[in-house]
């Protein structure tokens, strides 16, 4: 009886989620067609960043949230994707698409090669190993002349077009691109959430030994999650390079960039579908707002607010905004259990 009720609740939850999801896409897509809503304004810039950072966080969420492997090394894959696009545009002077694909594939392969040995490490040792990997990549890229070294790659100014994925006069193209990326990455996660891989990943997160005893090949699951996560992070990196018209090592392959992946997801709610979007939707506008409105207090004040927000969140509710929603009873009983990981009920 109880079980039946539970599964009914779950399917109802899924239905609501689907409606919310399709509604969100419809609203975001409709903005493109409303004249004046999207264009040159800073609001468009904030919207593009929200979609980009939500996508990045969601790509990290696959490995960190669903599979439970907290990596601080995702800026490496992000950077590989950015350099894929940058090399195609700047060094080979061609359209970026092949480069983006190549960068994403290289990122996925690299992630497997790095993940294979690193998954032997647990907890903090894994975290520190991923820090070390970021430092190595960042510094090697800094002195590697073929890819532009410390100067990085500066994009040429060309005519706005979809074939080059570059726009200089207005941001509508970037907004559309970011929306496609967002829908694609969230769609992938939505798809695997209810598939075998999604269940395997959550099983590995809950307890690797238990999952293995039930016949889950945990190494294979972790590596699959890692490769998928890296591939998607690389796509975000490519978009980032196209959007900024340049790429250099400190911009993409830094520890701060890695932390962005982690913090946005955690701020929203790790291991939940909506978490990465909520985290980005709260953090990015807040940061852009504090940077301009608190500028009179001198440099760094927006970052101080950011730091305090992280501290507050970790002290008050490490499950993020999803945890807050559950706490205030906005989600139902089942969801509360899911979001807070509380098995007591």
């Amino acid at each position: 009886m109880n079980d039946k009720n539970g599964s009914f609740m779950k399917s109802k939850r899924r239905l609501i989620d689907n409606i919310l999801w399709i509604g969100l896409i419809a609203v975001l897509a409709a903005l493109i067609f409303i004249p004046g809503a999207i264009g040159k304004s800073t609001h468009t810039h904030v919207l593009v960043l929200v979609l980009l950072y939500a996508s990045m966080a969601q790509s990290w969420n696959i490995l960190g949230g669903y599979c439970g492997q907290i990596s601080f090394g995702h800026s490496v894959f992000f950077g590989l994707g950015a350099y894929g696009a940058g090399m195609a545009m700047v060094t080979y002077g061609s359209m970026p698409w092949l480069g983006i694909l190549a960068g994403a594939i290289i990122a996925a392969v690299t992630s497997v090669l790095l993940g294979w040995p690193c998954f032997k490490l647990r907890g903090h040792y894994f975290a520190i190993a991923t820090f070390a990997i970021v430092e190595i990549f960042g510094r090697v890229f800094l002195i590697w002349d073929w890819i532009g070294g410390a100067l990085g790659l500066d994009y040429p100014i060309i005519k706005d077009s979809w074939s080059y994925f570059l726009w200089s006069s207005n941001k509508t193209g970037y907004y559309t691109g970011a929306l496609v990326l967002f829908v694609f990455i969230f769609g992938v996660v939505r798809y695997i959430e209810s598939r075998k891989l999604g269940y395997y990943m959550r099983a590995v997160k809950e307890g690797q030994e238990t999952a293995e005893s039930l016949g889950v090949n945990s190494t294979k699951v972790k590596l699959t999650a890692m490769a998928l996560s890296a591939f998607l992070a690389a796509l975000c990196g490519a978009f980032f390079a196209q959007y900024n018209y340049r790429v250099d090592p400190p911009m993409v392959m830094s520890l701060d960039m890695s932390m962005k992946f982690v913090l946005i997801t955690i701020l929203g709610g790790m291991g939940t579908f909506w978490g990465p979007f909520l985290g980005a939707a709260v953090l990015i506008p807040l940061q852009e707002y504090t940077r301009t409105s608190l500028a009179f207090l001198g440099p760094g004040v927006d970052q101080m607010v950011y730091g305090l927000l992280i501290i507050f969140m970790m002290v008050r509710q490490p499950k993020g905004i999803m945890g807050f929603l559950a706490e205030f009873g906005i989600l139902g009983r089942n969801e509360k259990k899911e979001a807070t990981g509380d098995d007591a009920s």
């Binding site: 439970g68 907290i70 903090h124 975290a127 932390m259 982690v262 913090l263 955690i266 790790m270 207090l297 001198g298 440099p299 760094g300 004040v301 970052q303 101080m304 950011y306 730091g307 305090l308 927000l309 992280i310 501290i311 969140m313 970790m314 002290v315 490490p318 499950k319 990981g341």
Partner: peptide, 26 residues
């Protein structure tokens, strides 16, 4: 933040590090 979630203390101290760094910068 101890015992609430994996890595919560690490991330809390990361927040502190950002705060201190930018406080001194300011």
């Amino acid at each position: 933040s101890i015992g609430k979630a994996a890595m919560a203390p690490l991330l809390a101290t990361f927040g502190l590090s950002i705060f201190l760094k930018n406080f001194c910068l300011n």
